[in-house]
Design a binder for these strands. Structure first.
Length: 461
DNA sequence: CGACGGGACGC
DNA sequence: CGACGGGACGC
């Protein structure tokens, strides 16, 4: 089944990643010399000495492939600078660049000592350190936090002193942490030109290694580029909120980002009788501030439990609860509302912004189940011709009680509805299947059970 | 027919 | 400075 002969190394040169050494030696060092000195660190799968094409003379460059990255790292750490043969120069040992990488630059320890992990949101930096210190001395731990609330996003970095320690952590820690090597901080992964670079190998260490470690995402990135091209972003934003917010509160919130030049609380034209304001219009004096404000405040819970929805305002459309564009809609679906639901504390029928148009009678609005409720039943919904907005879906599907959340699949006309009670889900299915809501026909079915994943950590949100 | 599976840091 | 082999199943 497995081909482990030392002669034949087909495509597994980089499997697992960083398990191969690049060794610079004196030309007179032989394969046996290398084997003698390097075999104590682990299972050597192959040794290859480069030879000159014409003269067949050794070039003093060789590769040593181990079964594990930690073995390669330990060999590197221990052997780098050692003299193999009396009177020859000290050898140099590095982790080899992946075969598919065009770069021949040395792989720095910087790239090999920091890992990126998924952890429960309740973890502190100390918890993180205590969890991962069994693999080696830790220089520091970082949590990724929401800048505004300070709450952990359940993601963290652990910096070790030595590559072998990071490798050991990745190899041996609980799979649910999904530990991988962190991309170096210098590279700005953030301004998402990922759409342009996806599939291209022009970004050094981003290429083959990241394909190894990052599952392909269906998420539509690159909104900055796309939005500019389509002219969908403006300096104006729309705030949607289910909870009542005062003009002062909204002003204070959006004034956190410099450049606000306008902030007005508007009544939902469809809910004139309701006291609380449904949405607000905010404008900044520059594009950067509006983009930044949307990024920072969209999805922000204020007050806690009330997730704000911030979208770009498009002058061509009615402001009431409308998305600026399909692009922005998709982005909101995948970033803000995914896996989220409003806390029931602030959920109240009077604050519903969705305008529901149906040709059948709907039960009254019900409270949502707590977002940490255990899912007892899931519904699978197919929309025709296109998905309904999440606030509408929540409005409709909550009316049978125990609704936990509605989740749309980005780029597809389908979604999932989670209930904390099977009976409620059944009733929702019975009443809503085949119905038309706001002109969108819905098929409502029981969802197939989720795929079993043995090493899966329960989601902590 | 139609299906979820995750991930990034204020230089 | 010091970066990527030899050789070929059996449909």
């Amino acid at each position: 089944m497995e081909d482990s002969s030392s002669k034949h190394m087909p495509e597994n040169l980089d499997d697992p990643p960083n398990s191969r050494l690049f060794v610079v030696t004196s030309r007179c060092v032989t394969e046996d010399d290398l084997r003698e000195r390097f075999s104590k660190y682990g299972d050597i799968q192959g040794i290859w000495l480069l030879k000159d094409k014409q003269t067949k003379e050794p070039k003093g460059v060789s590769y040593v492939k181990y079964a594990k990255s930690s073995q390669a790292c330990m060999a590197m750490e221990d052997m780098h600078g050692k003299v193999l043969l009396e009177g020859t120069k000290p050898i140099k040992v590095f982790i080899a660049q992946s075969r598919s990488s065009a770069k021949h630059r040395d792989v720095e320890d910087e790239e090999l000592t920091r890992i990126f992990v998924m952890i429960p949101k309740t973890f502190t930096e100390e918890d993180l350190k205590n969890t991962f210190r069994e693999y080696g001395d830790i220089e520091y731990c970082d949590l990724i936090r929401n800048k505004l609330t300070g709450e952990s996003k359940g993601l963290g970095y652990v910096r070790y002193y030595k590559p072998s320690q990071a490798a050991l952590a990745i190899e041996n820690c609980d799979k649910s942490y999904r530990a991988i090597l962190a991309e170096p901080r210098s590279k700005n992964n953030y301004s998402e030109d990922a759409g342009a670079s996806r599939g291209g190998g022009e970004y050094g260490y981003v290429d083959s290694f990241s394909q190894h470690t990052f599952p392909a995402s269906a998420d539509q990135g690159g909104h900055m580029v796309v939005d500019y091209r389509h002219g969908d972003i403006t300096r104006s934003l729309i705030l949607n909120t289910r909870a009542a917010l005062t003009q002062e509160q909204i002003f204070a919130l959006f004034d956190l980002i410099p450049g606000m030049e306008y902030c007005e609380l508007l009544r939902d034209s469809y809910c004139l009788t309701k006291g609380p304001l449904g949405y607000a219009l905010i404008r900044y004096n520059n594009l950067g501030s509006s983009v930044y404000a949307k990024e920072k405040l969209n999805g922000f819970e204020y007050p806690p439990g009330n997730r704000l929805q911030v979208t770009f305002y498009d002058d061509g459309e009615s402001p009431a609860g409308r998305m600026a564009s399909q692009v922005v809609t998709a982005q909101i679906m995948s970033t803000v509302w995914n896996g989220a639901s409003c806390g029931q504390a602030v959920k109240s029928p009077g604050y519903s912004l969705s305008r529901i148009q149906v040709d059948f009678s709907l039960p009254s609005l019900k409270k949502l189940a707590p977002s940490d409720s255990k899912t007892k039943e899931r519904l699978f919904v197919v929309f025709n011709p296109s998905p309904l907005p999440l606030n509408v879906l929540e409005d409709v599907f909550c009316r049978f009680g125990s609704l936990i959340e509605v989740h749309l699949v980005p780029g597809r006309n389908v979604g999932y509805v989670k209930y904390a009670d099977r009976q409620c889900a059944e009733e929702a299915k019975a009443l809503l299947h085949g119905r038309i809501v706001n002109g969108v026909k819905m098929k409502v079915m029981l969802a197939d059970p989720p795929r079993e994943e043995s090493h899966k950590r329960p989601r902590t949100y």
